[in-house]
Amino acid sequence: MSSQSQEGFGPVQLARWLGMKEWQLRRAQNLGLIPPPDLHAHRWSHALARTLPDRVEQILAEVGERPEPTADGKTSRPRSREGFGPVQLARSLGIQEWQLRHAQFRGLVPPPDIEGRRWSDALAETLPDRVEQILAEVGDHPGIGSEKSAQYLAERTALDVQRADVQALHERGILRPTGEFRGWPLYAVKELDALAPDQLLAVVADRQRWLAASLTNAEAAELLGWSVGRFEVTAERGGLAPGRFGRYARADVEGLRHDR
């Protein structure tokens, strides 16, 4: 557990940690055998993950075997009499499964009303009239991640845009994700194009100012003429915590000279 990020588990990490395949985890979620993520709606906390290992045997027994693909390469999944699963609902609406996920992410499709994992016939019948709105909002492309978004913005603006800048725009509520993939946000190109130049310039400048005014632990230790270990222990004892990117403010580091 200690090797995992403090931000919990994404779906791939959780599946591996539980000794399951990713498709088994997804199906277990659809069946309600694994609770929804409790961190930012896309990651499982350590506390929640610890409740699952004892249930893996039961989960795998209920998940069953993976369906074999049919001649057209699609997985055969007969529709349950108890409403629609996500794949079935997407097909019935004539949209892609990722478009359904993104529509749920944006609140355009209500949550499943049968045990939290399937949509009833009654609820599904209310959705065809929303398809036009869904397609208009989620578009015809699933979006791109923060790394590719940064590359796209850098090429479009000639600014030194980094992944951290895209994440900062998200955290500030300026850039809204269109959906997510394996727990990571995806951004529509039209949303990236809609960013105001001054908003983008501000986050890039903030990052560059912090990098110029801060040091890594190794750089801080070198500045003080200490070992990295001595610096980290002294900083911790003095209540000096790293900031963004795990870096320390140069002024705070220099203040440690007087604490020796």
Rank of each mutant, 00 (worst) to 15 (best):
Q24Y: 05
V189Y: 00
E232H: 02
G32S: 02
A241L: 03
A103G: 12
L25A: 03
G238W: 03
A124C: 14
R156I: 15
G32K: 03
P111S: 09
Q167E: 15
W226I: 07
E232W: 01
D259F: 14
G145S: 12
L192N: 04
P78N: 02
Q151S: 02
G243V: 01
E254Y: 07
E147L: 11
A196N: 09
A15N: 05
P69H: 07
Q96S: 08
T178A: 13
R209A: 13
G83W: 09
A124F: 10
T157L: 13
P197A: 13
S80P: 07
A41M: 14
Q29C: 10
R130D: 01
Q99M: 12
P110A: 02
F9E: 00
E132G: 06
A220C: 06
P36S: 00
R66Q: 13
Q208I: 06
R257C: 12
G229T: 06
L60F: 15
A220V: 10
G246S: 00
R209E: 13
Q133I: 05
A218Q: 13
P78Q: 02
P177M: 14
A202C: 11
D121F: 10
A71V: 15
R91G: 15
L123R: 08
D140Q: 08
Y187K: 10
L123Q: 15
E222N: 06
G107R: 11
G179N: 03
Q96G: 13
K148D: 10
R91A: 13
P242H: 00
I59Q: 00
Q104P: 02
L215M: 05
I174A: 05
A122D: 06
R207L: 01
P110D: 03
E180L: 11
H258I: 04
P36Q: 05
D160H: 03
K148G: 09
P69Y: 12
L52E: 00
P35M: 13
V138P: 06
V233L: 09
D140E: 12
E254V: 13
L159K: 04
R91Q: 12
A15D: 09
G183E: 05
L200F: 10
A194C: 07
P128H: 01
T157Q: 02
I34S: 09
V189G: 02
P112N: 05
